[in-house]
Write a protein that binds this DNA or RNA. Structure first.
Lengths: 364, 364
DNA sequence: AAGATTTGTGAGAACGTTCTCGCAAATCTC
DNA sequence: GAGATTTGCGAGAACGTTCTCACAAATCTT
C-alpha cells in the first residue's frame, strides 16, 4: 500500500509517478508546448490516480493573472439591481472561465475605496464597479494606474476615461411622462430617492448620482415637451428609508392640488407610495396612479400590475463582462459609453382619465 | 528623476529603497518577528513613496491561505434569499478580513459540482454551500476530503457530517396553519414549488429539498393537530415557472370545494397566486386568503399586506460565516446543526372569517 | 547520406512573498 | 567584565506552478 501524503498532490508527485520531469508533466496537464500524445496519456493517468488538481494560486502567481474579476457593487435589494446584475455578471464570467470576487459598498465611498484596494491587492484581472458617487473618482483612476481594466456600470462618472454601461433613464422617464399624459394626467408628482443626510425635501440636492440626474432631466424634458407647467409638477427628494419616504409621500399627496400620477425613481419609493396609499385606502390605478423605474416580479404580479420603466439589468451585466474581458484579453481598447434602451411596460397602475370625460382635467 | 518601473513595486524594491534586506522589509510591512521600531518607520516610508502594495496572491501562495471563502448558491431572485444571504455573507466575511468568491448553480447539480471544484482549485479557505439537492453529496464530501471547511446553509443534506445553518420551516408552516385556523379557515390549499421535470401535479414527488419537506410536514402536522381532515386539504406541486404555477393555482381554485386560504411555499408561488387572483378579480384577504413563506418588502408594502412566515436570512448568512471562520481558525470543530426560528408576521392577507358568523364554515 | 529542421524532453530560473536559521551586536546578569 | 541572553537583521529556502533555454533524438530535405 502506498504511503498517504497528508497534503494535496502537486505536479511534482504527478511527474514522479509518470516518470517524467516537472516541466513535461506541466505541459501535459496544461496542454501547451511540444509534447508527445503518448506522454500526455501517461501523465493524465498518473494525475487521475493521484487525484491531482492544479493549484490555481500558484498558477496565478506564475502567470500573473488570476482569471478572477472583482465586482464592487451597491447592495440595494429592492431595486432589483444588486441581485439581477450580480447573477448576470457571475454567469457571464463563468461562461468565459472567470470567477467573481464580490464586495458590497452600501453606497459608502470609504467602503468603495477599501473594496477596490483589496480587490487590486488580490490581483483580480479587472474590475466592474457600480460607483457610489459621481463626485469622487481618484480611486477609480488608481485602478487604471495599477494597470487593471475597469468598467463602470449603472452610473456614469465624469472626469474619468473608462468604458461604462448604463441605461437610458432619461428617455425612460420621458416616456413615462408621455404615457401618463396620454392617459389624461395633467398633474405630475415625482418621488426621488437620493443619498444624503437631509431626510426629505423638495429642494434639489447639489449632487446626485447620474441615474437620478437622468431621471429628473427626463421628467423635466417630458413635461416641457408636453407643455406641462411648473405648477403642475411637484417633487420630493428623500433618503432611502421608510420614515422619510412615508413622510415624503404624504407631503406629495397632501398638497392643495395633489398630483394624479406619481413617478417614483426606484422600487423603494414605489413601495413607500404603495404603503401610504394602502393606509389611506387609495386604490392604485384609480384614486392615484403610479409609474416606477425598474421592473420586478411583484410589479407584474400585483393587481393591478404596476406600470414600469424597465431597465435591461441582465444585459447591463453581461455587456460589462464582455467589455471587461475584451480589455483584459487585449489591453488598449477604446473606452466606450454604452447606453442601453429602457422600455415602458404599461400595466394597470395608471388610471385612464380620458375614458371618463367627467374626470377631464380642469383648464390648466 | 527616478527611472519609472513599468510593473508594480515589490517588496524587493521597498527593501532596496530602505536599504535593508528582503526579509526585514517583509517583517516591517507584515508586523511580525523581531524588528526595530526605527526600521519599521524606514521601510514604511520607502513603501509609501513607492506606492507599494503587497501582492496577495504571492502571500497566499506562501502562507497556504487566501483569506477568501467560496459561496455556492442558488440564484433565485424572487425568494429574496440569494440577495439577502449574499449580502449578509459578504458583509460578515469582510468584517473578518475575508473576501467572497461567488458562484451560481441555478439548482443544477452539475453546475454545483463544477463550482465546488473551481473554488477548491482556487484555494478558498472554506466554502458555504446552498445545496441544490439533498440526494447527492459525494461532491460535498470531496470538499472535506480536500481539507476545506464546509458549512451548508438553507437546506439540510443527509449523509454528510458538516455544520449546517437552516431555518425552522416546519414550525413556520405549522404556525401558518394554526393562524389561518384561528381566523376561521377550514379549507386549506398548499402551493408548493418543487424542482423536476413534471410540470405541475398533486402527486408528491419522491425527492424534495429539505426546506420543502419541512414545509410540507409542518403543514400536515398543523392540520393533524387541529383535526383538519384530508378532504379539507389540497395541494399542488409545481415547477417554478409562470406557466405551470398559473395552471396549478387554477386547479387549486377550481376545485368543487375550493380552499379559503392558500399557503405558498415560496414567493414565486405567492406571486403566481396574486396574479391569477387579480385576473379573476378575487380580492386578497377577502375572497381568497394567502400566507407565504419568506418575507419581502413588497409583501409588507402591498394593500393588504401579505401575511408571511419570515425567515432570518441575514442571520443565516452571518452565522454561517462565523461557523466557517471558526473552523478555518481552529480545524476540528464539532459539526453542528443550527436551526433558526421563523416568525409568523400577520398582515392583512388572511380574511377573518370569525368576525362574520354568516361565513362560519359549514360542518366539516 | 549529410546537413537542416522538427520534435520531445529536462534542467533550472522565475513569479513575490514568508519563514527558518544562523550570526553579530547589544543588553543583561552577578 | 566575562558569560548568558536578547535583539535585529540577512541569506537562502520554500510555496507550486510555468516558462525559457538547451540539447539529443527523430524526421525531413535534396
Amino acid at each position: 500500500m502506498a504511503i498517504q501524503k497528508s497534503s494535496a498532490p502537486t505536479i511534482i508527485d504527478v511527474a514522479e509517478r509518470a516518470g517524467v520531469s516537472r516541466a513535461t508533466a506541466s505541459r501535459a496537464m496544461g496542454g501547451y508546448g511540444r509534447i508527445a500524445e503518448s506522454t500526455v496519456e501517461l501523465v493524465r493517468k498518473a494525475a487521475a490516480e493521484l487525484g491531482y488538481r492544479p493549484n490555481e494560486v500558484a498558477r496565478a502567481m506564475r502567470q500573473g493573472r488570476t482569471r478572477t474579476i472583482g465586482l464592487v457593487i451597491v447592495a440595494d435589494f429592492t431595486n432589483a439591481f444588486f441581485d439581477r446584475a450580480t447573477k448576470a455578471i457571475v454567469d457571464a464570467a463563468k461562461a468565459r472561465g472567470y470567477q467573481v470576487l464580490i464586495t458590497n459598498t452600501d453606497e459608502d465611498i470609504a467602503a468603495e475605496r477599501q473594496a477596490i484596494e483589496t480587490l487590486v491587492d488580490k490581483q483580480v484581472d479587472g474590475l466592474i464597479v457600480v460607483p457610489s458617487t459621481s463626485a469622487v473618482h481618484d480611486h477609480l483612476a488608481s485602478i487604471q494606474t495599477s494597470g487593471k481594466p475597469l468598467v463602470l456600470i449603472d452610473r456614469r462618472v465624469d472626469g474619468i476615461i473608462a468604458t461604462s454601461v448604463t441605461t437610458d433613464d432619461f428617455s425612460g422617464t420621458e416616456a413615462a411622462v408621455r404615457h401618463a399624459h396620454a392617459m389624461g394626467h395633467r398633474r405630475f408628482g415625482f418621488l426621488i430617492a437620493a443619498e444624503g443626510k437631509y431626510g426629505h425635501s423638495s429642494e434639489r440636492p447639489a449632487l446626485l448620482i447620474s441615474t437620478v440626474e437622468d431621471r429628473i432631466n427626463g421628467f423635466l424634458s417630458g413635461c416641457a415637451d408636453l407643455g406641462i407647467k411648473a405648477r403642475q409638477q411637484s417633487w420630493m427628494f428623500c433618503e432611502d428609508n421608510p420614515r422619510d419616504s412615508d413622510q415624503a409621500v404624504a407631503k406629495l399627496l397632501d398638497q392643495p392640488k395633489a398630483p394624479s400620477v406619481i413617478l417614483t425613481s426606484n422600487n423603494d419609493m414605489a413601495l413607500a407610495l404603495l404603503k401610504t396609499a394602502g393606509n389611506r385606502r387609495l386604490a392604485i390605478g384609480k384614486d392615484i396612479s403610479l409609474i416606477t423605474v425598474d421592473d420586478s416580479q411583484w410589479a407584474a404580479a400585483m393587481a393591478p400590475g404596476i406600470t414600469v420603466v424597465a431597465r435591461p439589468v441582465e444585459s447591463l451585466g453581461a455587456i460589462a463582462v464582455e467589455k471587461l474581458l475584451a480589455e483584459i484579453d487585449a489591453p488598449g481598447q477604446k473606452a466606450e459609453k454604452i447606453v442601453l434602451p429602457t422600455e415602458l411596460i404599461a400595466r394597470g397602475s395608471v388610471a385612464n382619465l380620458v375614458m371618463y370625460p367627467e374626470n377631464e382635467p380642469e383648464n390648466y
